[in-house]
Amino acid sequence: MRLKRQKRHRRTVRFFTACFGFRDPFKVLCDGTFIHHLVAHDINPVDTALSNLLGAEVKLFTTRCVLAELGRLGNAYSDSLSAARNFMVARCDHDKRKSAVDCITEIIGENNAEHFFVATQDADMRNGLQEIPGVPLIFGLRNSLLLEPLSNSQRHFAKSAEEERLHLNDLELKMLNMKKYSRPVLKEEDSPDMHEGMDHKIMGSKPIKLFGEEKKIDPKDKVQFKRKKAKGPNPLSCKKKKTQGTQNNAPKKETKDAEQTVRSRSRKRKRPHKSKTVESTINQ
């Protein structure tokens, strides 16, 4: 049963966030009866209990008229008054203090511009605020907090607002029915230069029609494509230049002035063939 109740509460909160623009942290406006119910049933901390109910962070508000009403009730509501003083005070411009019902209904107004969740134990007050579309209501039942289900007026208002968004309004219809702006085409006899068309033909330009008028393009207005220039070789694919020290790797040759013979430094050792060695052994 508790899980079904939580799902219903989450569905109600999603309805107000999607249709009326409520955003967290949610603002909860409490009257004296709701604060007294919290103190009597020891629901503490209040912000944690309300955040668990709404599924997001909350800010608690009350009014000066509510504080004044709790103060007039005497010592029986002294604990409720001290608890209400810890809440933030919503602005109400009342020189003479009014009752909590009149003060809260005046703050809510016709469309609940401040997006308040109203928490109260007054059944008549809840019934009156249910007629206003964008006012979610919270009340306490013993040691648990509940969110008032959606009323028929709130459902009807959301459905009609959705249908209005699907259709075009008067301003949008006028914008669609407006004619496109177009300048009149100049005739040949009205043009200041009679030979302007001949000049374009000679230059090789072609007149084109754009939105009901002829627009002539000169050759200088044509798109000029840039030619690709030849690029150099890829430096990563080129071989490295040889240094001077590695150019003369060949064996150096020495020349003698007298004999003018060339001798290489690296001499190869001549080894006798196996056949010669065999013959020499036989002769011996």
Rank of each mutant, 00 (worst) to 15 (best):
T12H: 05
F15V: 01
F20N: 01
G21Y: 05
G21P: 03
F22G: 02
F26E: 03
D31G: 08
H37Y: 08
T48R: 12
L53P: 06
A56K: 00
E57K: 04
E57A: 08
V58E: 02
T62A: 11
R64H: 12
V66Q: 12
S82Y: 07
R85P: 08
R97F: 00
R97H: 00
H115M: 03
A123Q: 09
D124P: 00
Q130E: 14
E131Y: 04
P133A: 14
G134T: 00
E148H: 13
F157T: 11
F157C: 10
A158G: 11
L166C: 04
L168D: 07
K179F: 09
K180G: 10
S191F: 06
E196P: 00
M198F: 05
D199L: 14
K201F: 15
M203P: 00
S205P: 01
L210I: 15
L210E: 12
G212E: 04
I217Q: 14
I217S: 03
K222M: 02
K222Q: 07
V223A: 10
G232E: 10
P233I: 08
N234I: 01
K242S: 10
G245E: 15
N249S: 09
E254L: 13
T261G: 13
R263P: 00
K268W: 02
K270W: 03
R271E: 14
K274D: 10
T277E: 15
N283C: 02
